[in-house]
Design a protein around this nucleic acid. Structure first.
Lengths: 183, 183
DNA sequence: CGCACCATGTAATGCGTTACATGATTTT
DNA sequence: AAAATCATGTAACGCATTACATGGTGCG
């Protein structure tokens, strides 16, 4: 799956593993991210599959850069994936909901403290979407005119993050109120 | 992590791997689930760790049941986990958002068809929370009076599912409208 | 002087999925 | 007659995380 994300970014322009990691951190982070080590090993595998190819750019001071670019086979694989509809909901994994489900075992105050902490985390994340993420996208749109048609989709996914965080904050407020009232 | 979910359910009553799978499917499914094979292997590992122990209940017709019950060490491990606050947001993995992010590459109609399909999936899931999940929880509460204090937390997590689906439907409507208008 | 940034990789481990394997009973 | 339910397990594989390993440049 990461594979397709990397292919997607490589349609923008040729990049190194390091660059790709930074792109992910700044844009798809909310719904897809990967560790540096996984990116490097996945790129290697993708090159063997023929989806991308690399060229070494020597650098005097710093380590040489291995710049990857997408091949025709890579483009075909990406487009094929993009057209293949997803017909199921993805399985969710939310440790804090699992904890909450069994939290009748712990003191009310401990639960409340954690819910308030969660609320703060989501508040920060919401703010990030509204300021930083927005700015990064506008900046990318301004610097790379050939990506103009992509900006609409970036914005739709950013809106999803924004709505998600707003929903979580509302839900946490409701949960906190229910627990406070309950005692 | 699955480990703690299994411990949680085993505080309700002793159960088999099969029973645990059913419990998950009916209750924590939205934020945590596991395949049958993983449940069996995890239970085995947990018994070796001393968190649970099992007894075989012979059955004449059907395969013998291996019934697990939580140990004192298991209770301690569970409570320890429940009290340990989560200080980061969990990484999300949403394939359909990743696809959408790069969907400038495909025809508008293909994207719209997929968004409408997604909307229908979320609508069905919302309905499930509002009817089936609700009924299952009420039923469990009625049949097991000793779980009365847990019901409040079950309901809070169910509400999260409900809100999440409602949010996704709103967002999809917004996204569909933006794409329709865009052409 | 220490930390962040640039830049690449490998190895070990853990968690989860898919597939394999069996078989009687009950329901449709 | 076929499918679902009850009931258990193992093996292979894939994806992701953590840890290991290196090293120069630039900034505060």
């Amino acid at each position: 799956m990461l594979k397709y994300g990397l292919l997607g970014f490589l349609t923008y322009q040729p990049m190194t593993g390091y660059d790709l990691k930074q792109q992910m951190d700044e844009s798809t982070d909310y719904f897809w991210n990967a560790k540096q080590s996984q990116i490097y090993t996945t790129l290697k595998a993708m090159e063997q599959e023929g989806l991308i190819r690399s060229q070494i750019e020597p650098q005097p001071d710093r380590p040489d850069r291995r710049v990857y670019m997408i091949t025709d086979a890579g483009l075909a694989a990406l487009d094929d994936w993009l057209r293949r509809p997803i017909t199921t909901l993805p399985p969710q994994r939310q440790p804090h909901l699992l904890k909450l489900f069994f939290s009748a075992r712990v003191e009310r105050e401990v639960v409340l403290t954690e819910l308030r902490l969660q609320r703060e985390l989501h508040r920060q994340q919401l703010e990030r979407y509204q300021t930083h993420t927005r700015a990064v996208m506008n900046d990318a749109a301004a610097r790379f005119p050939h990506l103009a048609s992509d900006t609409k989709f970036w914005e739709i996914t950013r809106r999803n993050g924004e709505r998600y965080e707003a929903m979580m904050i509302e839900w946490l407020d409701e949960a906190i109120a229910a627990l406070v009232k309950g005692e």
